[in-house]
Write a protein that binds this DNA or RNA. Structure first.
Lengths: 117, 117
DNA sequence: CAGCATCCTAATAGATACTG
DNA sequence: CAGTATCTATTAGGATGCTG
């Protein structure tokens, strides 16, 4: 998928299997519906395995498949990048927003101007 | 951002600067509106630089910033993963969909059943 | 060429209530 | 506990027309 919930779930399951509500608590901010949809999507793609224990109350474990495990490394690399650069990105955004909020105080256009090639 | 258009743009700009319509042609399937929004977003995050040549007709180059360049490697790793595993994922999806389309011919539930832990 | 503005639709997220 | 069902609000995205 590529969306943020899927990324978080894959990262969490990288440390081992987890139960539904366990994931729900761990993620914080995700609705139970989105967690269901996310897990269903990951399961569909063969990244996550779903194991039902027919106990009462019911228990369902989610774990990464072997394919899912191969995803961790590249995803982690990207996560690390995001983490390392989040302040620089934040700063860039603030700069950009300040520059473009000055849209009403002209005398300067929005972009760098290049020399004719 | 993380969306697919941004990923594609970053990959393309990894090979060097490109002009707007150049990108539009290269991406194929992107609308001019989405390309504008995507570039604006990347510019805002400090990943892409926009250079205007005040010629006639106007010319605008987009290129990766140094921050943008550091993104290429992790993004490429993820892209490589997706490429390597796309058939397996496709197969997993077909399996999953076949299994869940049989939702109307029961006598088997949707998931693996675990032994009681 | 490189866009911005506007309109409109379809997909998505999120909250809430209910079930085996 | 682990969901499903339903409804609403927000968003993404495409199409079109206009400008410097």
């Amino acid at each position: 998928m590529g969306d943020k919930w899927s990324v978080l779930v894959v990262m969490l399951l990288g440390d081992g299997p987890r139960r539904f509500s366990d994931l729900k608590r761990a993620i914080e901010g995700i609705s139970q519906r989105m967690l269901t949809l996310t897990l269903r999507g990951l399961e569909r793609d063969g990244l996550v395995a779903r194991t039902v224990f027919p106990t009462n109350p019911p228990r369902v474990d989610y774990s990464l498949t072997s394919l899912g495990h191969t995803l961790i490394e590249p995803v982690r690399a990207l996560g690390a990048w995001a983490d390392e650069n989040r302040f620089e990105i934040q700063r860039a955004r603030e700069d950009f927003d300040r520059r473009t909020t000055a849209e009403l105080a002209p005398a300067s256009s929005r972009s760098a101007v290049g020399e004719g090639a």
